[in-house]
Structures are given as structure tokens and as C-alpha cells.
Design a binder for these strands. Structure first.
Length: 667
DNA sequence: CAGTGAGCGAGCTTCCGCTTGACTT
């Protein structure tokens, strides 16, 4: 054997081995192979006495990290070290992104490589691309490694720096971090907005208008204005249930609505204007991890974690490309394959003359291509022999990929403007002229209110067959689902494809959030933790924190910013001071709608307090379902036991969490 | 005198990101 090639994933390695032949030995590192020690028992004896040992970073000495090989990686390192010793050269073919560069450097150190190594990078796995990558190796990029280390150090300092403040203030075993705390804060803001939302009633008036001609069907028009003033809808009301001060809209009473109904029935309507415009809709881009999780959630009702498990099996079975990616780009061969499948299904005219290309968003690292069927001939779903969830997910990926190369949907949108005295009405409808890609893949973006409108002429008078008024309530902002939270995090640049599903698992394991039907709600514990962090560490819960970090890491990666200077500014002159100055003690969360009631933590429990009486809150009670009656029931409960009292100690939230976390770990 | 249990104090918890199996429940 001459050359050892090290990749991150064994499935990838197997494939590349086939392209490279027996002159090369391809092996996997199984991701990162060294890390900061997580627990005290992982810290080597000689460092255990050091003041910085708990952090695993000697902040006084240029933020030097203490790296260890985790127990489960010892065997991998031993084997790689042996093979590296037998090889003339080692090609570090880890992913072409910041983390991949970091892994490559850790391999150099852990395997004790001495100059006989090069960096090999590729973005798609084809014979050509692999051959090219082998010919075009480059040296290790130490500045990029520095950016990766800085990222790791920042996350450790945030997580292990701030979590103890939560133990002292709210309960033991709690956690904070750059990613999870930003996600928790987003969930908490939404839950609080729902709790504080005041519904407003508004009226809608609808008319069934009869076009001319025999056998014609009535169509629905909605009243949009009275005497030139627009009618108030949900957008015109604030969260306090009041009409917004700057809103020009008219809020009508039930009486006025009834009068309008009677008026329309008696007078009929006149066609004031007919507007028709063509529109087209592009197919959505091929899947990234985030969009796959969103689509699987909508179409298949699969959670993020489950989606990734099934996708992993498809990947290992050679059915799809890599499932953790932030790039929607298709390789040339995949683009051709998708177009060929489309033509086979729907004929020559279902694809545009020029292939479509898709670019990643700004913050993407693009180490991989989009998630798509593997190979250069996509297997049709029913020819795969797959079944159950694997088949469903494969079909979703197959259709999305092929549809991405098909023609736009072409349609025509018509809006009828109707009048009846001072009352203005509107009716709109769409006609699909060419379904384009939607013949294969239909995103949920389709509108439900697609009525076929009749041909009418401007100035024409039409009778109103029926009219009715309905009262509606302005809706509170909707809860996040797993999918919509992932989308929000991705848009903010928080988290990575390999961690999206995990972020939600962490929030669930900490009992900061729970699923109710398909929606994520924040627990009382989550609200109290979020309130504390918002008070004491506002920078940590700001979605902009990661954006700033990424910019700084990019500067480190190109050598514009020194790692140590950046970390000194962040920690020594920043977060460390904030931690020192942080107030210890739980926040008192006032519940706007319930005067005199406060939620806070006492002796490791979340309690509701009124007039000095504190009662523990059950974890099952969803915060935004709290009612005045429920408050009374809770407050009639048993007071939280003072620490001095005899008798069995109340179950601590920390204990409960710990045991559930343990179970998780061993599972 | 031996065994039990209350009470006290010490020690631990925690991050993000990259990868799969080896474990239970």
C-alpha cells in the first residue's frame, strides 16, 4: 500500500475506494477524533489541579485547548496510526469546510504525521472528481484550522461558562449555550407573545354573486371597503387587541355588518374593474438538510430526528447522497439525470432548454452537494424495493430533485373589483395554464381559495344570491413546529446541518420545551431560564451573536484577525466579566394577564407565587393555556416545602432531568 | 452490641459539531 486516504464517513470511503483502486487504502475517521474533555474524569491527572481544567482551555496561556481522544475513538486512532505508519503518504480527505479542516489537523497531531501528508478536497463523489482531487492536493490551511478551534473554544466558554450561573440561580443540571439558548429564546418570545396576545373581534362580509347565463355557478366576493375606507382585518390589530393607531382601516360593528348584508342582497353589485395578470412559479431547489426536514415534516409528518435516521439508512444503502449538507447545488451528472427522468415521465417539453442551477445561501459552507438520489441514473421509487418510511422519504427526495429541473408553473390570476353603492368588494381566482413541475412535486405553497371566475364585463350589474356576515378573532402568533424552528435558526445562521435535529432534542431533554401535537411549546422551566438569560446574558440569546461570530471566524480564516486577540476580546474583556457580574438568584416572571402572580424558581423547583405563597408548577401545564381559574386551582395547592422542614425532600427538577439525560445517553 | 437511618456535606452537572454503531427499554 502506498497511500492512505482518510475521509470522515465510512460509506463515503467505500465508494471512493472503488474509484481509487488498490494503490490506495481509504479509511474513515468517523467524524472528529479529539475534543476538549467533557467531564472531570476525562481530564488527564496532571491537569486536574489546574484552575482552568474544568473549561479545558488554558485561557491565561493564549487560550490553549487541552485535547483528548475520547474512549470510543481510541480504536479508530490506533488503526489509522498503524496504517499511516505503513503508508508513504497520507491524504487527508475530510470534508471541505471549517470543521473538516479541523479534523484533518487533529489527525495530523493524533497520528503523529511528519510532513508526509496533504489535504485532498472534493465536492462530489464521481470518478472524475475524485481523480482530480487526488491530483490537486494542497497543504493544510492552518488559518482555517485556527477558525475552527476558535469556534470550538467560543462554544465551550459560552456553554461551560454560563451554565453554572443557571445551577446557582435556578437549578442544578441546567444548560446554556450559543445555539441552544438562542433557540430557547426564540421559542420563549413566541410563547410569551401568545400568552400576552389579546384577541380582537372583526367582521367579514361575504356575498355569493350570480353571473349571467344559464347554469352559471355563483362565486364568492368579500367586502373590502366601505365608502372608500378599507375594512379592518387581522393585520390592522395590535397584540393588545386594539386597532393600531396608524391604521386607516374601518372596524365595523355586527350591526353595520348586518346592514351591509341586507344592502348587498337588495342592491346587487356592479363590476367596476377586471384585472388579469399572468404569473409563474419556479420549482423549489433540491433538498438541503434543513429543507428536507421541513418538507418531511409537512408531507410525511416525520420529526427532524426520525427524518435524519431514515435518511442515514438511505445514504448507507447507497440510495441518496450525503444527508447533512447546506448546499442545494446539483452536480452536472445529477442535473442531467434529473432532466432525463423528467423527459421520460412527461416528454421533451417539461424541461427548460437550459438546465437550472441552484446556489447556496451566504453562510453555507458547501462541503457537499444537495440531497438527491445517488448515481447518474436515478432509480424510480417503485423500482428500489424500498418500503415504509424509507420509500416515502426516497420518493420525496426523488420527486423534489427531478421537479427542480422542470419548467415553471404558469398561471393566470384574475381579480374582480365589484361595487355596490359605497361598498367595495373583491373576488380573486387563479387558473393554472401549465402545471409545470407541480405535475411531479407539489409544495404546500398551493393556495386553497382557487375559485374559477366567470367572464364578466366592466360595468355589468350582477345580482347577489346570498350574503352573510361572520365574526372572526385575530389569531395569536402561531407556535413553532420543529420544522419552522429549524428554518428560523437556519435563516439566522445558527446551528449546522449535522445539529439541527439535535438542537431540538437538547431542548426537550432539558425539559425546556415539549411537543403538543406537532407544535413546540416552552415549559415554565424554559420560560424562567430564558428570562434569566435575557436579563443577565442578553448577548448570548441574541440571534445576531452567531452572525457576528461567523464574520470574525471568516476574518481569522483569511488571516485578518488573530485568534488570541479575538478570544481575549470575547472572553477576558467580555463574557468572563459578565459572568462575574451576573446576579445570582432566579428571575421573577410576571404574568401580564394575571396581576400579582409571578413565576420563579425556589429550591430547584419552578413555582407560582402570589402574596408570598409559593406553589410548585407541574411540568405538564402548558404556559399559554393558563386561565384565571387554573391560577386559583394551582394557588390552592400545597406550598413548596421550606428547606428547614422535616419529612421527605420534594423531588428536585435537577434530579428528574439528570435521570432522563442518563437514560438518553445509554439509549 | 449490632444494625439502622437521619442528617450533613462533598462532588457533580454543562457546550457545539463531526461521525456511527453498541447499548437498553
Amino acid at each position: 500500500m502506498k497511500t492512505l486516504v482518510i475521509v470522515e464517513s465510512p460509506a463515503k470511503g467505500k465508494k471512493i475506494q472503488g474509484y481509487l483502486g488498490s494503490e490506495y487504502k481509504v479509511k474513515a475517521s468517523f467524524g472528529h477524533i479529539r475534543d476538549l474533555p467533557a467531564k472531570k474524569e476525562d481530564i488527564p491527572k496532571k491537569y486536574q489541579g489546574e484552575s482552568w481544567a474544568r473549561l479545558g482551555i488554558d485561557v491565561q496561556k493564549g487560550f490553549e485547548p487541552l485535547y483528548i481522544v475520547p474512549a470510543e475513538k481510541k480504536a479508530v486512532i490506533a488503526e489509522l496510526r498503524k496504517l499511516a505508519g505503513e503508508a508513504d503518504e497520507v491524504l487527508l480527505a475530510t470534508d471541505g469546510d471549517r470543521e473538516g479542516e479541523g479534523i484533518a489537523w487533529h489527525l495530523v497531531r493524533a497520528l503523529g504525521l511528519k510532513g508526509n501528508f496533504k489535504r485532498m478536497v472534493f465536492h462530489e463523489i464521481t470518478q472524475d472528481a475524485i481523480q482530480r482531487a487526488v491530483q490537486n492536493t494542497r497543504p493544510l490551511d492552518y488559518a482555517l484550522v485556527g477558525a475552527q478551534e476558535s469556534r470550538r473554544i467560543i462554544d465551550r466558554l459560552c456553554g461551560y461558562g454560563v451554565s453554572p450561573a443557571l445551577w446557582q440561580s435556578i437549578g442544578s443540571g441546567l444548560s446554556a449555550g450559543r445555539v441552544q439558548s438562542a433557540a430557547l429564546a426564540a421559542l420563549a418570545r413566541r410563547e410569551l407573545a401568545r400568552m400576552n396576545h389579546v384577541h380582537a373581534d372583526y367582521w367579514r362580509v361575504l356575498a355569493q354573486v350570480m353571473p349571467e347565463g344559464e347554469g352559471a355557478d355563483p362565486f364568492t366576493a368579500v367586502v373590502v371597503s366601505i365608502k372608500g375606507q378599507p375594512l379592518a382585518g387581522p393585520k390592522d390589530y395590535g397584540a393588545d387587541g386594539q386597532l393600531k393607531a396608524d391604521s386607516p382601516a374601518l372596524a365595523i360593528t355586527g350591526e353595520q355588518a348586518a346592514q351591509t348584508v341586507a344592502f348587498l342582497k337588495a342592491k346587487g353589485v356592479k363590476v367596476a374593474k377586471v384585472e388579469t395578470s399572468a404569473y409563474s412559479t419556479k420549482p423549489p431547489a433540491p433538498f438541503t438538510t434543513s429543507t428536507l426536514q421541513q418538507a418531511a415534516s409537512r408531507a410525511l409528518k416525520m420529526g427532524a430526528k426520525r427524518t435524519m435516521e431514515v435518511a442515514q439508512r438511505l445514504y448507507e444503502g447507497g440510495r441518496i447522497t450525503y444527508m447533512r449538507t447546506d448546499s442545494p447545488a446539483l452536480s452536472e451528472e445529477a442535473t442531467e439525470a434529473a432532466r432525463a427522468v423528467a423527459v421520460g415521465l412527461f416528454g421533451d417539453r417539461c424541461i427548460p432548454a437550459a438546465p437550472r442551477t441552484f446556489a447556496a445561501k451566504g453562510n453555507a459552507q458547501e462541503a457537499h452537494e444537495a440531497i438527491r438520489p445517488a448515481g447518474k441514473d436515478f432509480k424510480a421509487p417503485d423500482q428500489t424495493g424500498l418500503s415504509g418510511e424509507e420509500l416515502s422519504l426516497y420518493r420525496l427526495i426523488f420527486t423534489r430533485t427531478v421537479a427542480s429541473q422542470m419548467t415553471d408553473l404558469q398561471g393566470s390570476k384574475t381579480t374582480l373589483h365589484l361595487k355596490s353603492g359605497g361598498v367595495g368588494l373583491q373576488s380573486s381566482g387563479r387558473v393554472i395554464l401549465d402545471p409545470g413541475f407541480t405535475r411531479l412535486y407539489n409544495d404546500e405553497t398551493d393556495k386553497k381559495d382557487e375559485q374559477q371566475l366567470p367572464n364578466v364585463a366592466e360595468g355589468q350589474a350582477l345580482p347577489v344570491k346570498d350574503a352573510r356576515a361572520e365574526v372572526k378573532k385575530t389569531p395569536a402568533p402561531g407556535r413553532f413546529t420543529e420544522a419552522s424552528l429549524i428554518k428560523a435558526l437556519e435563516n439566522a445562521g445558527v446551528g449546522r446541518p449535522s445539529t439541527y435535529a439535535n438542537i431540538i432534542e437538547v431542548l426537550k431533554n432539558r425539559q425546556y420545551t415539549a411537543l403538543v401535537k406537532d407544535q413546540l411549546h416552552v415549559t415554565w422551566l424554559g420560560l424562567v431560564v430564558a428570562a434569566y438569560l435575557q436579563d443577565q446574558f442578553p448577548a448570548l440569546v441574541d440571534l445576531a451573536f452567531t452572525v457576528k461570530m461567523e464574520k470574525d471566524l471568516d476574518r481569522i480564516a483569511v488571516g485578518e484577525l488573530k485568534r488570541e486577540a479575538y478570544l481575549t476580546e470575547f472572553w477576558t474583556n467580555g463574557l468572563e466579566q459578565t459572568i462575574r457580574a451576573a446576579r445570582h438568584g432566579p428571575p421573577a416572571l410576571a404574568l401580564g394577564k394575571f396581576a400579582g402572580v409571578v413565576v420563579t424558581a425556589r429550591q430547584e423547583q419552578i413555582v407560582m407565587v402570589r402574596d408570598g405563597k409559593a406553589v410548585p408548577l407541574g411540568l405538564a401545564l402548558v404556559p399559554d393555556t393558563l386561565t384565571p381559574e387554573l391560577v386559583e386551582t394551582i394557588m390552592a395547592g400545597e406550598t413548596v416545602r421550606p428547606r428547614e422542614s422535616r419529612g421527605p425532600a420534594p423531588p428536585a427538577t435537577g434530579k428528574a432531568r439528570k435521570s432522563s439525560a442518563r437514560r438518553k445517553k445509554t439509549a
